[in-house]
Design a protein around this nucleic acid. Structure first.
Lengths: 256, 256
DNA sequence: GTATGTGAAGCCATTCACAGCC
DNA sequence: GGCTGTGAATGGCTTCACATAC
């Protein structure tokens, strides 16, 4: 991924590995749940179990943020929630626009998870004049013609694209030209963006295909096992799935 | 990660790296577009550009499948489409159930990308009796009570969870008990599954938080640059976004 | 000449194992 | 005694660079 690592020899080095950044939201979610149950402290072992990761990995992840734990005791839940929130930039308000208010766009607009953590749906945008003015999730849909003005008036730097594939690149170009520097793409297309713009994609079809691959392999190994072949191999293959690979990236919604 | 690599010393080794598997759908999509334009062959350079990856990476990826290219010429588009489809298991039919027909579940049911590549929505399931019998995307919604029977009658091995977080683990347990071995989870929860079951997650809120992290850093470096600090560092940070990190991406196969 | 296929090198992330501190 | 923080070891993925084949 690249998000250039600035060599900062002295001071608290600002080089958090991308893999760690991707897990911080997971830890934060688990910690928030503990916080709601008024649990004061938690060990790396317990928290790791709740987040579905290995405890050594979790400790190393936290070590990039600083020494926020107490040996022999564990981590202070509230303190960690604050530190991770700050590190992720969730202590500030992030206005977000959603472009493309079809089934998916509407589902995203209605999704409660937005508001919960510093994200605010500042506007809904669609190219269909029939939708303009209609409210979705209590927010009026505005027309694509006004995209640039909407971005600028609201100081939006994060855009969500939920349009059909054919429109995605064009919408992306306009978002970027208007000042958006982070894009979450649900359209099944590769987006080209200039340096300095981050894109993450969510792609349902890719996820299903990856599952199909593993599913097929399981079936094949089962057949081999049934045929009386060395069963150890089959067991090894069945072993596990563990982490979402690269792309991990990757989730989303649309056709191949 | 880990999808156990079966050491297979001889023959065409069956050990495709997880990172490669995650990119195959991307290549397939680009190839399908070329195929529709009746392009007969494509070079690794061209295809890599279309898929948004480095050409050396693409060639290495394909080398795991076999030697399907021609030196000095490139790859035969139709042949590659077939080989990748077969490798991903898309030449067979995969019945899928969607559990949780709220906004998101309905959007997924309506999503055209399902049918396109071997995936077929075999059933929609929801716990709300008011929904039972109603059709969404032309498919009748069935009640959760019949989940096990639906899975078995349709030979379903892939399940999509689009329920609220609170219901996800329970639904997951029932799916697994009924025979599902691959799960695509849209609920913001870590799912616990036995070995042999693959889970991939799609999590909007995590993706946004990752974007916010980078967004915050850009802002910080901009401020530093404006203040007249060594500008090289800021440029390095702005550099690029490139690949979706781990989780890949949002997205992949995750913790049991 | 041109583009693939692949050893080798380098990089990043995970895991181990234990020193350090409560 | 218990648990964190982290150097060291390991393993996987990416990138380079070129031999190989058309």
């Amino acid at each position: 991924m690249a998000t250039g690592r600035t060599h900062r020899p002295a001071t608290r080095s600002r080089g958090i590995p991308e893999a760690t950044v991707a897990r911080l939201p997971l830890y934060l979610r688990a910690l928030t749940a503990l916080s709601e149950r008024s649990v004061p402290t938690v060990s790396s072992e317990e928290l790791a179990a709740a987040a579905g990761v290995n405890s050594a990995k979790l400790r190393k992840d936290f070590s990039y943020l600083g020494s926020y734990g107490t040996r022999g005791v564990g981590y202070d839940v509230e303190y960690l929630v604050y530190q991770i929130s700050r590190e992720l930039g969730l202590t500030q308000d992030w206005p977000v626009v959603i472009v493309g208010i079809g089934n998916l766009g509407a589902a995203l607009a209605n999704y409660g998870g937005f508001a919960s953590r510093g994200f605010r749906v500042a506007a809904l945008i669609d190219a269909d004049p029939a939708l303009t003015g209609k409210a979705v999730a209590g927010i009026p849909v505005q027309h694509t013609d006004d995209l640039e003005k909407i971005i600028q008036d609201n100081g939006v730097s994060i855009g969500v694209i939920a349009t059909p594939a054919g429109a995605a690149q064009q919408v992306c170009d306009r978002l970027v030209a208007a000042g958006v520097t982070s894009i979450l793409n649900f359209a099944p297309t590769v987006l080209n963006v200039p340096d300095g713009v981050d894109v993450r994609k969510v792609d349902l079809s890719i996820e299903l295909q990856i599952l199909a691959f593993h599913e097929q392999r399981k079936a094949g190994e089962e057949a081999a096992a049934d045929a009386g072949l060395p069963a150890a191999a089959a067991a090894a293959v069945r072993k596990q799935s563990a982490d979402q690979g690269p792309d991990g990236d990757v989730p989303a919604v649309m056709p191949a």
